[in-house]
Design a protein around this nucleic acid. Structure first.
Lengths: 203, 203, 203, 203
DNA sequence: AATGAATGAGCATTCATTCAT
DNA sequence: TATGAATGAATGCTCATTCAT
């Protein structure tokens, strides 16, 4: 019985969160009304405040919980690989396919995560940078193994790599691309970063 | 006399625009109050409406006028160069140095230009894509000249390149980096895109 | 319990409406502030928007609901009478006594109902003309019965009659006359319309 | 030369007044903007304040000056007549034809003169009542001469008579009736007040 | 006198949050 | 827990009026 109740509770928490992702993606954080989220989650307005402190807290929770899942997922995949080049390919492929599968969440991340806002910045600096730092760690490893160029600065490369993926996936919000397109794009970006634009065939 | 008046008028228009860039960058479009902009521009609230239709119109004008200047500027620099590799280096260097010089404007572009909003999206599709398309044009030219790899898709590469620059410059909002850092970052990103991460010395 | 809530709700709706009548009568529609109405009704400003769409909607509701009541009331009284002369006397007496009892409402009707405004004009042409047309119907009946002069145009007479009552009651807004005065005035106006000014005793 | 200037000045004063009548009639006093009036009068906004104290002062001036003209006009016509019955007929005929000729002014009088407003009320009690009192004076004279019924109260009859004319002319704002209609309406109203509704042929 | 750019007080409306039930 | 009616702070925009030219 208590289990049932607990399930019910977590259901509501989850329902509100998913509703919020949808609504935030649809009209942006500022234009989204608590009543929109409540309606989408089929609860009363007041109920939301039993699960979240404020409208802003919902946004933060989305990053905390949903982005957290993404990060853990990507991390575990990369851990199974040892070759740095392959690792970056996996990161790219995985990031893009997630952005594609979770369009609404992607949009919320891409838009709201950039808001100039102290709390938001703090968040980026903690939880999110952990994710992006996966890239610089891989690059450093590749450099140590003599596979990657040593004159590349990992701190810059990580942002360049992440920025590429981010911008490349932005056009996908509507309509959704095929999984082939996603894979091909991941390959292109990874290849670009591995080999560069210059044609070495001649040399 | 008429000159004086004219100057005054354009001063106000410009002052309000610059004030808005500052305020929008500082607290974001939604949190910015018209009275904040008015105070920053040292005019009365109502005066703003002599020069702009609405708060939203100010944001659009920033893109229309300020981004327009940037685009024209970068374009004219690139037109003086014929080598595609150099052209991309110039694009990178110029984009980053502008983002660095106009921190507030950069922030407004990076944040507000992403807002889920029909008009904003339209804007991206017209004026802004012109800018990003410079990159794909250069890439196609390089491929035609046999300098760039032909298996790279210009449409993906342009976004990857722009996304890299965008993300790389994001961290600069505070505090401002030295011009050396800016140049070095531009070189790094361009080099990454030219040569890739892989160390070819061995081969 | 549900009764209590229902009562409370309808109380609020009614309270706001009555408060609005008072405030509109006191300072006119345009000078009336939403907060004035809210204060008078002892609710928060925002509460008003739970019951009405806009300030203008309140005004329309006053006519729709309050004037509707008046019309129904007068109509039912007249239906109980068959003699056209008596019917006009009843109309006059009833109209005036209502204007006297509901001073604020009377003032709102007399002032706001005349506003040059498309919606207001439409309203006059539908709900209100129904009321005034009672008079022409009575006159036509009287003419058919040979009691009233046939050279009188009912369309003109109805407006003349209504205009007389309207103007005659305008002076009552402050201070209120005794019910004797009201009755006497009704009798005078009705008598004027029945017999005219000319002294026939002599002839 | 000074005459020319004077003429110019009075031209502007008059132009502004006529423009205001037009604009007030078109959108009502509250919705009318000073800039609307200025544009209609082909002067700058600020110029209006050289001739009038405030927006409200313009409205008052309309009544003071324009209504004044009407009153003087009607008075002089009535002064040429000695028979009370004819005098009322002339009053009716004249009032209606003026309301018809000056539609905009009529609308302003009918609407704005009713606004609940201290100054407006004062105005009604002074300048305007002078006009309406013409009617009661005539009635008293008729009673003294034994032509009019002595049981009619002049104070009530004057308002009834004026109210009739006022309401009867309200429908004329658009489109304008022919002068025949105006005359016929005047005759009807006067006749109604002279002879009443009741058919005396039988007696 | 005339102009019209500048001012800033004023107000309807929205919506996150609370709280009695 | 859940509800949703009630709250009231917050703000973009309008426009009568002023005043430097």
């Amino acid at each position: 019985m208590s289990k049932k109740t607990e399930t019910k509770e977590s259901n509501k928490h989850e329902r509100i969160l998913q509703a919020a992702i949808k609504v935030f993606a649809g009209k942006g954080f500022f234009h989204a009304r608590i009543s929109d989220i409540a309606k989408e989650a089929r609860v009363a307005d007041g109920t939301i405040y039993l699960y979240f402190e404020s409208k802003y807290d919902i946004l933060l929770s989305i990053f905390e919980e949903e982005v957290g899942k993404l990060i853990d997922d990507v991390k575990s995949r990369i851990d199974q690989e040892t070759n740095p080049q392959r690792m970056l390919e996996i990161f790219a492929s995985h990031h893009l396919s997630m952005m594609n599968r979770k369009t609404s969440l992607a949009e919320v991340i891409q838009i709201e995560l950039r808001q100039t806002n102290q709390k938001m910045k703090e968040y980026r600096n903690t939880r999110f940078s952990e994710y992006v730092n996966l890239v610089s760690t891989i690059i450093k490893q590749g450099q140590a193994e003599g596979i990657f160029r040593k004159d590349v600065k990992p701190g810059i490369a990580k942002r360049a790599f992440f920025g590429s993926l981010d911008e490349v996936s932005r056009v996908w919000t509507t309509p959704a691309p095929t999984s082939y397109e996603v894979e091909e794009t991941a390959r292109q970006v990874a290849s670009l970063f591995m080999n560069g634009l210059l044609d070495k065939k001649v040399s």
